[in-house]
């Protein structure tokens, strides 16, 4: 039993056990008894809105913040006792762009390479795909780069010492849609090289791009699983509705006694019922018509991560 446990431990890249962190002398609870584990070579997502506690978890894992309670290991090392070992093995990209704005792309990259006792050439293979895209601007100062280029440079700097674990705190926040897509493609390639990646994002659509995700809200983890399983675990049928006056439709449905939840989602509104029946669509259309929405379009849909998240959020603890 003990032996099998240690085997599991070796295969785990990141392990958090009952991590709790408070600020302002315990007044503000940022991370509440969080436990999760990331396997070696896995692309793991921490999904949650702003202020959910994602950055605090990242700072604890990168050894710059001490947890109040609980233990955590990264690459098999304890974040408190072996912080030096972790710093040599982890690549970290903070949520805020944190490179030297007055140094050029090349100078930043060189600086971080030398700090880790390596050179750009030594690990060039690892960053080649990403670096080649920004190389034409080698002599431009980092502060003068576009958001997408800054993000690529930051990723290069985080990778330059060939880390075992990559910690990316909201890497795609404030980046355009095309760059975001490119970024996730890059992450997939990195994953193929055996690097464990922990990434946080407030965007639900990015959750599907991770192998496993943890949904986090108010410092608590709501669920940890593959995106598919989380969606599958959605217990009831989900309906989408649309009408000319969608706002009134939403308020009308919320007033009714058979709707459990209703919320806007893109051009549609999503709703779940207290009691699902085979002819629910007909009933909903009828109800809408009674309230003056003769044009209402109602259909049954498969839920997404966002729906699961909202449902988990609304559940009483």
């Amino acid at each position: 039993m003990i032996q099998s446990l240690s085997i599991i431990n070796r295969q785990l890249s990141i392990k958090c056990e009952n991590i709790t962190k408070t600020y302002n002398k315990g007044e503000l609870l940022a991370v509440d008894d969080v436990s999760f584990a990331v396997e070696k070579g896995e692309l793991f997502g921490l999904i949650g809105p702003d202020g959910a506690g994602k950055t605090s978890i990242f700072r604890i894992l990168t050894t710059v913040l001490l947890a109040d309670k609980g233990t955590a290991t990264v690459a098999g090392f304890d974040v408190v006792d072996d912080y030096r070992a972790i710093r040599n093995r982890v690549g970290y990209m903070p949520g805020k762009f944190s490179l030297y704005q007055d140094l050029t792309i090349k100078e930043n990259l060189e600086f971080f390479a030398t700090v880790f006792g390596t050179t750009i050439e030594e690990n060039y293979e690892l960053i080649k795909d990403i670096y080649d895209q920004i190389k034409p601007f080698n002599n431009r100062r980092a502060g003068k780069l576009s958001g997408g280029m800054k993000q690529k440079l930051a990723l290069c700097c985080a990778l330059i010492h060939k880390p075992e674990v990559l910690l990316l705190d909201e890497p795609t926040t404030g980046v355009d849609v095309v760059s975001r897509k490119e970024f996730w493609d890059m992450l997939k390639k990195l994953k193929q090289q055996g690097i464990t990646i922990l990434v946080s994002t407030p965007y639900m659509d990015e959750a599907n791009l991770c192998e496993r995700i943890a949904l986090i809200q108010n410092g608590k983890i709501l669920s940890v699983d593959t995106p598919q399983n989380i969606i599958k675990a959605f217990p009831v049928s989900l309906y989408a509705a649309k009408a000319d006056n969608i706002y009134k439709l939403l308020t009308d449905f919320r007033k009714s006694d058979f709707v459990a939840s209703a919320y806007a989602s893109g051009e549609y509104m999503h709703l779940t019922l207290k009691e699902d029946k085979p002819d629910s669509i007909r009933m909903l259309t009828q109800y809408a018509a009674q309230h003056g929405h003769s044009d209402a379009e109602i259909k049954k849909i498969t839920p997404g991560i966002e729906d699961s998240f909202i449902r988990l959020m609304q559940q009483p603890n």
Binding site: V64, R87, Y92, K96, S98, V115, F116
Partner: peptide, 13 residues
């Protein structure tokens, strides 16, 4: 202020 210290702190410096 620019947050670069955050990046420096996670290096072996």
């Amino acid at each position: 202020e620019t947050g670069t210290i955050e990046q420096i702190n996670v290096t072996p410096i």
